[in-house]
Design a protein around this nucleic acid. Sequence first.
DNA 1: CAGCATCCTCCGCGATACTG
DNA 2: CAGTATCGCGGAGGATGCTG
Lengths: 131, 131
Amino acid sequence: MSPGHSEGTDCPSTKVEETQACELRDLLDRLADKWSLLVVELLGERTHRFTELRRAIDDISQRMLTLTLRRLERDGLVHRTVHPVVPPRVDYELTPLGAALLDAVGPLVTWSRRHPGEIARARAAYDEQVA
Amino acid sequence: MSPGHSEGTDCPSTKVEETQACELRDLLDRLADKWSLLVVELLGERTHRFTELRRAIDDISQRMLTLTLRRLERDGLVHRTVHPVVPPRVDYELTPLGAALLDAVGPLVTWSRRHPGEIARARAAYDEQVA
DNA sequence: CAGCATCCTCCGCGATACTG
DNA sequence: CAGTATCGCGGAGGATGCTG
């Protein structure tokens, strides 16, 4: 893989000590890319195989699914099990850490369900006003 | 899939109905960029002026702060008050919606504080094994 | 089936300069 | 002070092709 490690642990000059933004930003950076959270949620339901995930998400490219899973694995959120059979079979599941994280995301999920389209509506209103 | 506009409301072909991923992804897309959450957290403490935010975050570019605030405003999370004085003064504060959202993020913040560096450690372990 | 490698495009974002 | 306008690069990520 490319050596472009821009590991977020550096925690730059943001002076927001009170909010301890560093940890949080790392976390967000991990979850906030286009697919990670989706994958974590699916794995929260049950173990999935590679292709299952691929089909469940459907418009994810194979490359991005691989990358996403590798990153999640690397960060200790997802566990990867290779079954030495032919054809190959690989299972992905949440680690305890991953499950805990998913729990922490729960309220956010709930919130988004409770406020369906509120952001979208505000957006539409704003746009209309501008137009 | 048509790239079209970046408006998330289209909620494409992701078949993850159970997780209602669309809303959530919209939400994440809004929060997950480099600065939004940081801004929302600061505004959660109190109202800030433009330059206050700029100094609090410090390594945000002026352009990105403007863009971030505009997007948050557009999405109904932040309210912008222009005081017609010289020199100009603009205050930013959370809307009720924004405050509610911040609450929903709370557990995530707490979690990240409770697991300091756990992800970073897993990452280091993983990298060592690979190397 | 579950990947890795390569190429290429698009746009996020920083740097810089100008304004009411 | 609080923006807007323009330029340019770097990296995220899609498409495609090859492998064990």
